[in-house]
Every structure is written in C-alpha cells, then in structure tokens.
Write a protein that binds this DNA or RNA. Sequence first.
DNA 1: TGCTAAGCGAGACGGTACGTCCCGTCTTTTA
DNA 2: TAAAAGACGGGACGTACCGTCTCGCTTAGCA
Lengths: 217, 217, 217, 217
Amino acid sequence: MSFRNSEVETGANARSGRPRDQVREAEILACVLELLGESGYDGLTFEAVARRARASKATLYRRWDTKRDMVVAAVKAGPASGGGPPAIDTGSLRTDLLALCERLDTTMRTADPTMSLLLLQAGLEDPELCRHIEEATGPTGAKLPARVLAAAIDRGELPAGAQPFPFEEITGSVLLLRRLNGLSTGPEYLAYLVDNILIPALRASVSTTPPTQAIFS
Amino acid sequence: MSFRNSEVETGANARSGRPRDQVREAEILACVLELLGESGYDGLTFEAVARRARASKATLYRRWDTKRDMVVAAVKAGPASGGGPPAIDTGSLRTDLLALCERLDTTMRTADPTMSLLLLQAGLEDPELCRHIEEATGPTGAKLPARVLAAAIDRGELPAGAQPFPFEEITGSVLLLRRLNGLSTGPEYLAYLVDNILIPALRASVSTTPPTQAIFS
Amino acid sequence: MSFRNSEVETGANARSGRPRDQVREAEILACVLELLGESGYDGLTFEAVARRARASKATLYRRWDTKRDMVVAAVKAGPASGGGPPAIDTGSLRTDLLALCERLDTTMRTADPTMSLLLLQAGLEDPELCRHIEEATGPTGAKLPARVLAAAIDRGELPAGAQPFPFEEITGSVLLLRRLNGLSTGPEYLAYLVDNILIPALRASVSTTPPTQAIFS
Amino acid sequence: MSFRNSEVETGANARSGRPRDQVREAEILACVLELLGESGYDGLTFEAVARRARASKATLYRRWDTKRDMVVAAVKAGPASGGGPPAIDTGSLRTDLLALCERLDTTMRTADPTMSLLLLQAGLEDPELCRHIEEATGPTGAKLPARVLAAAIDRGELPAGAQPFPFEEITGSVLLLRRLNGLSTGPEYLAYLVDNILIPALRASVSTTPPTQAIFS
DNA sequence: TGCTAAGCGAGACGGTACGTCCCGTCTTTTA
DNA sequence: TAAAAGACGGGACGTACCGTCTCGCTTAGCA
C-alpha cells in the first residue's frame, strides 16, 4: 500500500525513507499541462506523461491514482495569474451581466469541453481548486461579483436582498451545454439570456434563500 | 471507401453487392444496449460488442466509424415505448413544473451521466433521435408540453404569448450539471428552481422571441 | 460444389449454364503476374487480385482453390517467349556447363526465391508447366541440352552413353539453396562446381541408368 | 527503440530497467516448439504462442521482431541431446555414405519442409545454431564426419587430401529439394547418388580447394 | 557515519482494445 | 448459371496503454 498525495499532505506521522521530490512533482505537472494542451483530456495518457517528463510510471502512480487526480493536481499547480481580476462595472446591471457572460463564454471556448466538464466536476468538490482556477485563468465570470450585485441594488435595478445564486446556478451550466452541443452563444442569445432569464430570476431571488451550493468555481 | 449507415439510408442510387443484413444489425444494436447498461458508455468496447453479438469487428466498423455513432444508432433503434406519454395536469403551473422537473431528474438518474451528455449532444443534431428518445424513455420532461403552457395561460398564471423556451433551455442543463457534479436535486432545490427561476423567466418570456433552439430532446 | 479448372478442362460432359469467361480469366491472371512482381508470392492475396482485376473473390475461388494454384496458372498463362532459346556451344564441355550454370543462376536471381521454390515444386508435377517456364523465361539452364551432351561425347570429353541426369539433378538444387542461403554463386564457385562435381559425375554417369526424374523444369 | 535478443546478449553496456525474465523466455520458447510441432511453421502465430504461454504479445514482440527470429530462437534453445552422435563406420566408403544419406533423409522427413528450409537458411548464418541443431536432433548427416573420410583414405578408396566439401554441398540440397518436390528418395536413388555423384566428386576433390562454405549445419 | 527505507528511472510483464487486413463463404442483383 | 459487388464470422496483425512488478541506483533521516 502506498501513500497518495492527500494522505501525505495531511499525514501527521512522519514517514521514514526518502521523501517525495516536490521539484520533480512540479516538473511532471508542467508536462501534464503541456500534454493536456496538445492532446486534450481524453488523449492524455500516463505513458505519455512519463515519457515527456522522463519519469517512471511508478513515480506517477505513487502520486495519483487516476488520470483525473493527476489532471486536477496539474491545474491546481498551474501558474497563478499574478494579476488581480479586472473588475466589471459598466454602469448598468444589464451590461454588467452581458460582460460576465461573455467572459465565461470565452473561458469555455478556450479549454476543451471535456476539461471544462472535468473542472466543473472536480472544482465543486474542491474549493481550493475553485480558487485556483479563478486565479489561474482569471475570473471565469461564473460567479456574480458582490460588487456588481451591490451596484445594481444601489441603482435600484434589483431589490435589496437579491441573491447571486440564480446567476451562478444558471449561467455556467447553460453556456457549457450550449458549447457541448455546438450551439451558438452569440450576442443575441446572451441578450435573451440576460433579459428574459437572469434578470427576472435575480429580481425574484430576494424572497427565499437559495438551497445549497453555487455552480462553477 | 465504404458506406456508413446514414449514407445508405439516404442513398438514392441502389447499391450493388450483397446488402447489409438489417436483422443482424438490429441484433447487434440490442447487444450494444445491453452492454451499455452493464458497463456504461466509457466501458463499452467494439471488441465486447463483437463478442456478445458473435459478430466480426469488420461488421461493426463497416457500419459505424466511432463508438459514439454506434451508441447513438443503438439508442435510436431501441424499443419504442408503445404507450403514449402520460400527460401532466396537476391544476397549477407550479406543481406542473415540479412534476416535469422530477420526471426529467428521474430520467437522468437512470442513465449514466456520460450517456445523458452523449445523447444531449447527439440529440440536438438529430431530431429523429430526439423523437426516439422521447418515445423510448417516455417523455423526458425536457420539453414543456404545449398543454401545460396553455393551461397556465388559461388560469392566468402566465401572460398570453408566454414561450416554452426558458424552461427548456434551463431545466435540462441545470439538472444535468448538478447530476454530473453530484449535487442534490431534492425537493427543496426543485422548488427553488421553479419558484425563483423558471416561473419568473416564463412570465418574462412574452416580450421577445427566443433566439435559436431549445435544449434537450 | 463447383468445378475447378482441371475438371473443366478434362470435363467430357458439357456443363449447362453460362460458361466461364476465358477472356476474363486471362485478364485476371495478368493481374496475378503483376502483383507477383510487386509483392512477391507471400505478399500476394486473393483480395488484392480481386481488387486489381475488378473481379469478385467468388470468381477467383471458383477457378482456383489455393493461391498456389492461381499463381501456377498465372505463370502457365504468362507470355510465351516468341523467340527460340539461344543455343549454347562454346566449344568445350567445361565452358558449356559454365554457361548453363550462369544462365540458371541468372534466372533464379531474377525471380523471388519463394517463387523459384514454388515453381520448382509445381513444375515437377506438371510437365506442361515445365515446358511453359522454359518457353516463358527462356531456357532455364536447368536442363542439359542433348546437343551439348552429344558435342562433348563427340569431342571425347565424355564417354559414349553419358547421361544428363547428374547435371540436372545437382545444378538446380545446389544453386537454389545457395541463393536461399544468401551464399555467393560467383565464378570461382561455379568453376569448382563444374570441375569437381559436375564433370566427374557426368563421366561416371555411363554405367548406370538414372533412377527417376530430373529436377527443375 | 527497444533491444532485441542478440543485442542484449552481446550488449557490453549494462542495461537499466527491469531485466528480461530468462525463465519466462525459456517457457515461451518451449511453447513455440510445441506449437511448431502441432501446426507447422506457417501455421504458427504470435497470437497462439501468447495464448499458450499466457504471455502478452508485447512480451513476444519485445524479444523477436519476426516469426522467423522467434522460431530460430526456439530451436536454438531447444533441448540439447545430451548424448553424443552415434558414429558411422560400416567398413566401406560406399556404405558409410549411404548410411549418412539415410540419416539426413530421416531428419528431413521428420521436420516439416518449411522448417528444414528455414533452419537451412538461418543455420548457415549462425554457427551456434548449426551446432545446436546437430546436438538437438542428433547428427543430421549433413556433414561428412572427418572419421569417415579418413577411414576411406586409409582403405585407399579416396586419394589422400580428399575434401568433405562436395558431399556437404550436394547432399543436403539435393535431398531437401526432392522432399519439397515430393520425389522419392528411396534406396535406388540414394545408391545412384552415392555411386555416380558423390564418390566421383569426392575422388576429384583433391585437386582444388573448395570455394567457400559447406551447406547444412 | 553507516543503516535503511523509500524515492526514482527504466522498463518487463500479463492484459486488453485498438483499427486494419485477409481468409473463405454467403447472398444479392444484373446479365 | 456466371459475374461483380460486397456482407459476413473469424481471426491474426502490430501498436498502444493499462496498472503492477522488478531491477539497480540514489538519497534523506534516524541511529
């Protein structure tokens, strides 16, 4: 039985023997990211990673049980975007929302769809990863910044107490599925989404508390 | 160059040589469905299908270039649900929508998630397949039946001219992604979805025409 | 049960139905020869012949049971060398034999080794084929022409009653095997063969009658 | 690039990584020999060897590039006949030669013809293999034992300085080709071969030195 | 300082699936 | 019937990964 990453991290008892080489690990994960870019998630193999990183397969399996784990670790370890997220403030709720949607759409168009899904899945279980994605790729637009919400309330466009949940719940999933389905997400679509779905839902969001958990980072 | 299924079907010119055995094809597709149930989409292999169907791999590749094609064909050829779809009419828009959401949720819980996605993707490009899924699995709940909409308008719950688009656009994608993410889709969630998102969006749907195409079958 | 070539040829009773197309057959065999040249015997396939000749595989199998049969037929049907065989008469037995050996060696160098063997095998069972090879490829040098033998006897180089058998028995097999083994068959080797093996054996061949059958065409 | 057997054997530099399992290799080659006996050379497949040996095909291809290589290795690794070769000494050159011919003929009758050829080819390039065949199958009779030659010279049946080359050059190839051609190699044939070909050639072999290399182990 | 457990690279190993090719038989249409 | 076309079950091909397992070597940390 070997010890995987999480156990190592949390491992209270010090293990004897030679410790894992953290530098090596970083190099490997860099290769993972490279290969992800070249072959996509499905095309990625342990074998190829080992080859590229001049690492033994054992070295990989010692760290990560599954491809998924490895990829998630790679994204997590990916280069943080030094810069802060360029804030959005266009002067009206409608245009703010449109800007956010476009930003998210761009983010998704960049990554391969399987990756989007993967990160969506993995991200929700791992807040650490969420934060990292935001930092790495810039703000995804999947979250409704508190600032935008507050400004809309100030302007009277939304009632006091409006919640970000409907935006976050709807936007990520709807855009992702349109991508997967090869449907357009052009300006007229986004306008419809904002005007007829998002804004009404946000207006209605004051009455109740959202059930559980937001979606997408 | 060989001729794949679709070309054969649409092929106006009669092809020479021995024709494909449609009976055999049906048997094979039945095996595909069996194996899908047993191993899921990712676990399905050409090899296993050939084994189970006592068919040559060439016989499979002759018909379908990819696993995706084969699976889609299998679903398409699946057993049609002789019975009509049990209509929904609970007496109020809110409970009608809740019933539809539960129905769709159940449908998704049944299939494996990859399959849901797959069919989602394939289905949108292939109306024939859409129809078939509806017939095969019963109404998916992904569509908002005209009857439900009309009844709501009659009762005054929705303005005249309300469109089904927002429902169809949101419900499928949101529920699917929650499933993929392992998030709950319990009653309190569905209630929030209906009350704070769907109904406001439907009320607002009268003003403009929806952009392009509905989602999910 | 279908009727293969030999039966058809010898078939006394006229068969009903459409007769085989002899022209088609010739075209097919031409393709066989082409492909033989391109891919060698082992690389030759029924499939490829059918493709090249735009013939059905059934058409091939109807005529020939095995690849061997087909190839033999092709060689048999190959282009006859209009010209007669350039006779050999160098003035001495020794040089006559050397010339014959070189001629045979050249013949073998031309064809691929498997073919040589094949024809060697097939040829011995089929005198018709033997004759054809001689006519097609020119004299192979495998036979000791009566003329050469007689001249040698006239000159007193061989005793009266000398037999061609030892030459024919030895030369073909020895040269073929050296080829197969990639051993040289250069001038010094041929000289040794003629001087120390063939001539002594021919001199001794007067006493007894050779046992059975000559070798190579 | 991987390293095939010969390179490994001769490899001066120590190779890293897990070494090939020599025990496993022996087991595999034993299976090869079994299957050779059951199906013959042409009938032998990598697939069947893998099955029988419960080995991965990769394990086979790692070692041998071609069927030929594998079979040669198998023969080479075959069970050595601990016992020495039963010497031949019948009291006269003529009967000694006849005995040798019969022995070789028997050897060839045992193996399948393709094998004989194969080993003939491979053997000549690989003296190690030659020796092994002799040890494995007993003396093949392809070589003219020095002892027999010396005895004949002692008895005055051959001139001093007679060479074994003509015997070794002729006998193997002539007998092999008769086998391939399905021609008889009965006593009367062998008698003719010995009396009219081999003995005259051996008598003449004193004058010159044979050119290159003997044939058949 | 020397022991020892683990890390590490390399790559062997049994499996399994891939997608292609050919075998020899069969079924269809057209002549 | 033959012939062209090509479907069909079968099976081998050679390649690629999977996840596990030796190897020989290196390296840290405890004794």
